[in-house]
Design a protein around this nucleic acid. Structure first.
Lengths: 255, 255
DNA sequence: TTCGTTGACGAACGGCGTTCGTAGATCACG
DNA sequence: CGTGATCTACGAACGCCGTTCGTCAACGAA
């Protein structure tokens, strides 16, 4: 009995030293916060946020759902950890306050890119008030740019907050189509969008033109631009306002 | 048997004609789309979106959950109907394209006010792609203002879309505190906010000042302004950009 | 009167987040 | 070398959830 180890599908021979050298008795990958977060992110990327349940993650790890609660207090915390993990993928350009506008804009685009790249993680992003290490890192960078560019701290706080909110909100709105696409059995994204856009245009142009003259007349224009163009338009609106409010004149103060 | 009607707690006398004139045999409020939507909204206002389940609504109506599915295809549809019902409370000022800026801004503020006034309906607002009659009415008004003010249709479409997105996103962000407050057992809103703000400031100022100089130094400024000021700041950013893009010059073209 | 249609609804299915109690492993300390 | 305390793992269960199925009564048309 004393020689029995937990790895019961191996013969009872002494393990070679280099096997033991790795780590002391680690039959399975062993549960940990990072492993749970990583697994959760994998499930989310592959099957969407709706499929991301405690049970699903546990199953993926070959255990029961109760095991996760030793490392994570609740599903909400897991989602926050996953979101912060995703924020870790944001690459920040070299810090240079003299180019604050360019860098801030680049930052917003990068954040958007990363969030959109992870299925509908945007839902988790918007639903959580992020305080993880990667969120802090991003905040310090963006907020710092505005401060060092000469903005009063309160304005910088507001501006930074609004930009991040807008980025996440747009990503979220875009991610709404994700589950719908699956629900309709579509697998090609372009195909789905084409159909969806056609339906919306159909609907607008079929509205009674006496009560809804503008919507019915401009149905085509209403669906003309897709996700990325819409996002950039709103971002430009925000940044135009920002430049105008920057102390030192509303002209072209910096790049 | 032939005289029996379904209203079994009334004596079996012939109903007076004015009772029958209302509607043919209506023993209970009788299920209907409107009644379900109204009940759902009542539950949402009183107990929040998390408490709004099919079972809860059915229970409120004295029946089982299956009964609702004769009038509503799914919970998602119910949420969309509730949201459109809420949009019906938006009061639109008299249409006047010459004052497009004022009216559009007023519209955004009114939309924000209505959404915030209904607990966390913002979650449903953001999660749905609204096509109900009240959403269309609002769209026609706002989109029309931009068109009649001389904006090219595609720009007007983008601008209108971004404004609504921002309004909903801000309302949603604010509504995040709603369930948290309940979870912490707080009942006074001011009390909760005071505590929350104090915690965040505490956290920021406790960050190591060598790695996070801006966040730790300006902790107070970061939490200085509450919900409404933040909302207005972002709205002003958007509208500043909008004015600058309006054909006819970026000066002060209209009120 | 009959019959097809429709709304109401009890029951059940499968899945969810979370908690409880227990069993085993690990480790500080005598 | 014990040994008790602490921590991880996890099966089982609780009480929810959205939705579907089959049944049953009521009703309008034939």
């Amino acid at each position: 009995m004393r020689r029995a180890n937990s790895d019961d599908d191996l013969p009872e021979v002494p393990l070679p030293p280099w096997r033991k050298a790795r780590k002391p008795s680690q039959p399975r990958p062993q549960l940990s916060r990072e492993l749970i977060v990583e697994t959760g992110l994998r499930v989310l990327d592959a099957e969407g946020l709706d499929a991301l349940s405690m049970r699903r993650v546990a199953q993926e790890l070959g255990t029961g759902p109760a095991s996760l609660y030793a490392h994570v207090s609740a599903k909400e915390e897991l989602l926050e950890l996953i979101y912060d993990r995703v924020l870790g993928e944001v690459r920040l350009p070299e810090y240079d306050p003299s180019r604050w506008l360019t860098l801030l804009r680049q930052c917003a685009l990068e954040l958007h890119r990363v969030i959109v790249g992870h299925a509908d993680v945007a839902r988790a992003a918007l639903a959580s008030i992020p305080t993880g290490p990667n969120a802090i890192r991003l905040s310090e960078y963006m907020f710092g740019l505005l401060i060092d560019a000469g903005m009063p701290p309160r304005d910088a706080s507001l501006a930074f907050d609004r930009i991040v909110l807008y980025v996440c909100a747009d990503a979220f709105e875009g991610s709404l189509h994700y589950p719908r696409m699956k629900a309709l059995g579509h697998t090609k994204l372009n195909e789905y969008f084409h159909m969806y856009v056609a339906q919306i245009e159909e609907y607008f142009s079929s509205l009674p033109s006496d009560r809804f003259p503008h919507l019915s007349r401009h149905a085509r224009a209403l669906v003309a631009d897709g996700g990325e163009a819409r996002f950039r338009y709103g971002l430009d609106l925000l940044f135009d306002g920002l430049v105008a409010r920057m102390p030192g004149g509303g002209g072209k103060p910096a790049t």
